[in-house]
Design a protein around this nucleic acid. Structure first.
Lengths: 349, 349
DNA sequence: CCTGAGCCTGACAACGTTGTCCAGGCTCTA
DNA sequence: TAGAGCCTGGACAACGTTGTCAGGCTCAGG
């Protein structure tokens, strides 16, 4: 006799391994099916005595309502989907958690998936979520064409895009002020005397990257500094290439005296490179990083509040679901320059 | 006339906002319902010409299969649930992502929820996932009594606990070698000449915390060092109290010369406190931290591989689902001591 | 004692899909 | 040319739940 009887009950052919249904509960309690439904859903119109018998039956059989069937009848799943790039990126953890908390407040569960920055995978994920009939979608787009979502919008699936706008459809977006943040960050470096300032960021095809690049250019132009091509390195995020790009900028005859980095992954690598060099180079990074205050010098950043992005998006989502029909809107959240030292280093010419 | 016609279609009473069903597709294509089902599922027995007509119909109507109905018939949801403490903790991001990747390789989606270290909320989440009939559950327990899961185990819901063992039921567990890791970390400090070593960790009620405490005690005992109560601070994780506890240990007449911290949140705060002091104090932390190598001195840690925890657990989960009935097992993953400087500081007496 | 109101209760259909099964039409062979 | 066999397509039931509705009971008022 096995010590763990529960394992032995899993018959190959049985769906759900023979889970009890309301019918079973009803039979055991000697009541009708609908009465069980009423008890389970806390509907009125059941004698205390009957309710007790049903409850006892539920306990004894370990009954759990099958929400798939429920959804099929009711049409609402009380779940929302979140598609982001990579859950293990510290930028997305708080965002995801924020969406979850708002969902929870509305009694909904969160299903999430990582697109790995791949448009096809994004679409695959989104459609899988739609097949499960999530009530709403929060999407951090990887692709740039979201017309595949048109049937869902038509069907009333609430949808909010975050961090980057949707492509070729009209939908709600919540983004950070990437342009303004980058401009402020670069202006900060300029204010501390720098003129030759490097920019290392992602491919300009990515909305956030191009906005930040635009901010960089704007700040330089405002200061009347012509930008040299060799100061910019675009489409470079993997550590090896960021390292090379950084070293190149620093080894030129006229080296940059400061660097502005376009996202946290780039920033981390650049910090590593700079820490190996003796000559101090100023650095301002987009995105905050844990422990940034403990580095020497502390890291000056343009911080965006990823939790606020998630929260704002989710709240918007549920307002769509609440039935207040809103025209698609673009919401921009401010960024914040946090000075900790690295951005205040003077140029070492 | 609204510019966004899709919004206006959301009639209040219509379920799913009038999504087309297979029946609609069939009618439009002039075929039978089952034929549509065959096309959607790629089943054989449909003429290319018929298939084309059906596909065209699907496109035109924007049909998406309703997985709720499908699940109801088939009994498998192709989704697994993950309940953890807090997605925004950098320890859980990679773990969650690892579970997702394994799930994806098995064609399953991941639904996750944060228990916020609250037993009641954990149960609530787990049961919600069960009501949605997830095929499997990966749980990082908050509570210490999981008998409420007995009906699910009986029903064949694959279940694996991670990071901490299940309470009062017999189930698979994947944990790090918390005891051995802590012992190694503390032994490392002892090897560098320390004798008065502080320990700051979570409540011993939490399994990982008590194991790490046990490792600390074992290392001290191995070295023949009697531990003084004032060297240990238990159940303290919020920054303010960690700060106080650290300062207390360091201000005693016979201050500790090294500190071993029981998790990454504690570690971060202790680094802050130590960085404000002139006298160097050695530090080894449990859990690795991003940028730990860039601190001065670099942070020596006992690292656990949270992605490996997640991957191992998920693989085990799917082996349960593959039908190979396995006796519940406890899997322990090794930790790794990474020396970067802070743990090699000599005692400053 | 009868009637009607009000309360519990359960029978039944429906949600959208898939599995089973059978019918009709075709091809191929004897 | 007839029969066998295959291929395609569709009718129907079932999955577990909830909404609708009607039946039966109790009780008060006439």
């Amino acid at each position: 006799m096995p010590e763990t009887p529960h394992r032995t009950h899993r018959l190959p052919g049985s769906r759900y391994g023979n889970r009890p249904t309301m019918k079973d509960v009803a039979a055991r309690a000697g009541v009708g099916l609908k009465t069980v439904s009423r008890v389970v859903n806390g509907e009125p119109g059941v004698t205390p005595e009957t309710e007790r018998r049903v409850q006892e039956s539920i306990e004894a059989l370990g009954f759990r309502r099958n929400d798939s069937a429920r959804v099929l009848r009711k049409g609402r799943t009380a779940s929302v989907g979140l598609v982001l790039e990579d859950l293990s990126d510290p930028f997305y953890g708080p965002l995801s958690r924020a969406v979850e908390e708002v969902a929870r407040a509305h009694g909904a569960l969160l299903i999430n998936g990582s697109s790995a920055e791949d448009a096809e995978r994004e679409q695959e994920l989104v459609l899988a979520l739609c097949a499960r009939r999530v009530d709403g979608l929060v999407v951090i787009p990887a692709g740039d064409d979201h017309r595949y979502l048109e049937p869902e919008l038509r069907a009333g699936v609430a949808t909010v895009f975050v961090d980057r706008p949707a492509g070729r459809i009209d939908a709600d977006v919540v983004v950070s002020d990437n342009y303004g943040g980058a401009r402020d960050g670069v202006a900060h470096l300029i204010a501390h005397g720098h003129r030759r300032i490097g920019f290392i960021g992602d491919m300009p095809g990515i909305h956030t990257a191009s906005e930040r690049l635009r901010g960089y250019r704007a700040a330089m132009e405002d200061a009347g500094i012509p930008v040299e091509d060799s100061w910019m390195s675009l489409g470079v995020t993997d550590p090896e290439r960021v390292r090379r790009a950084t070293e190149e900028m620093l080894s030129r005859p006229d080296p940059v005296t400061a660097v502005f980095t376009g996202n946290n992954r780039v920033t981390v690598t650049v910090i590593r490179v700079l820490s190996e060099r003796s000559r101090p180079v100023a650095l301002v990074g987009f995105d905050d990083i844990e422990l940034a205050d403990l580095l020497r010098p502390g890291l000056t950043v343009v911080a965006q509040d990823s939790a606020a992005l998630g929260r704002t998006a989710a709240e918007r989502l549920f307002r769509q679901l609440d039935g207040t029909l809103l025209a698609p809107e673009r919401i921009e959240l401010p960024t914040k320059l946090i000075t900790r030292g690295s951005g205040e280093l003077p140029p070492a010419d």
